[in-house]
């Protein structure tokens, strides 16, 4: 009994340390963003600022084209989330449920493409888009992320767990394959769809590498790129940068809190069904 208690204390202690490691930087950022002083790295570090202000947040909106960057980020993220959910489920359905020549080879090629590090593809992607005069455009920002292989794979795995009887009952009821997908499979796949939507939203919202390469003017920046440009060669405006960073992280935080149930369920149910 005593041993169990010690184990429990150790377990909670470990959890607390891990939580601090993960949440610490965020709390530190929050502290800096609220600090009225510019010299935020004075020793000893104070987690609760002596003089605090919301002015940094105000300045982010006033001094920077934050509104424009926010629009860009929201626009791209929403488009990519919607298209990923739609195309990944459509392709996942085809791979899971339809018989067509070359299905296995096609899927193997798709999965194989996951083995290629994304960084290698940056240059070819840039060259292709450049040929189509899409550099520094919304199309250039969104097109490469309209659908991802990981999401197709996730949806395929989920659709494979739906009993075949359901599809056959719908066929006899008079459904076409698209209607089976749209009216039967999609509504029963909410956890998987939510998982795809959340992953995509997070990935797209935080994406840095592609936007930094494909945008050339300030007004086309997304939020992460815009924030990064606050760090220049000679100085870094830490309170401003941290205020922006906190603002950027709010939507993902809200979405995670709101959809936490689906998020966990989606991860857990990739191979399970009710």
């Amino acid at each position: 009994m005593k041993q169990l208690k010690i184990q429990k204390i150790l377990f909670y202690g470990l959890l607390l340390v891990m939580t601090l490691i993960y949440i610490g930087p965020f709390l530190f950022s929050l502290s800096i963003s609220l600090n009225a002083e510019q010299d935020v790295f004075s020793w000893p570090i104070k987690l609760i600022p002596e003089k605090w202000t919301l002015g940094n947040y105000q300045r982010v909106w006033q001094d920077l084209p934050f509104g424009q960057w926010l629009f860009n980020s929201v626009f791209i993220t929403l488009i990519q989330t919607v298209t990923n959910v739609f195309f990944a489920s459509l392709a996942g359905f085809a791979f899971a449920r339809l018989e067509f020549p070359g299905k296995k080879i096609l899927f193997a090629i798709l999965l194989g493409s996951l083995m290629i590090p994304g960084i290698i593809l940056l240059v070819p992607k840039f060259i292709i888009l450049n040929e189509f005069y899409l550099i520094n455009t919304y199309a250039g920002l969104t097109l490469p992320g309209l659908v991802t292989v990981v999401n197709i794979f996730l949806m395929k795995q989920f659709f494979e767990t739906i009993p075949k009887d359901l599809e056959e009952a719908a066929l006899i009821d008079g459904c076409s394959y698209f209607r089976i997908f749209w009216q039967i499979f999609l509504p029963v796949s909410k956890p998987a769809l939510a998982a795809v939507a959340i992953y995509t939203f997070q990935g797209s919202w935080n994406e840095f590498m592609w936007p930094v390469i494909v945008t050339t003017t300030r007004e086309m920046f997304t939020l992460p790129v815009g924030m990064a440009f606050l760090k220049n060669e000679f100085s870094v405006q830490w309170p401003l940068l941290m205020a922006g960073t906190i603002l950027i992280s709010l939507p993902t935080l809200a979405i995670f809190l709101f959809f936490q149930k689906y998020f966990v369920q989606g991860v857990a149910s990739a191979g399970l069904k009710e």
Binding site: P163, E168, I172, G174, I184
Partner: peptide
């Protein structure tokens, strides 16, 4: 199947859960 004018009852019921 839809044009054969048949209806089928499945072993696992195959009801649309939603």
């Amino acid at each position: 199947p839809k044009d054969r004018d048949i209806a089928m009852v499945f072993q696992n019921y195959a009801l649309y859960p939603h």
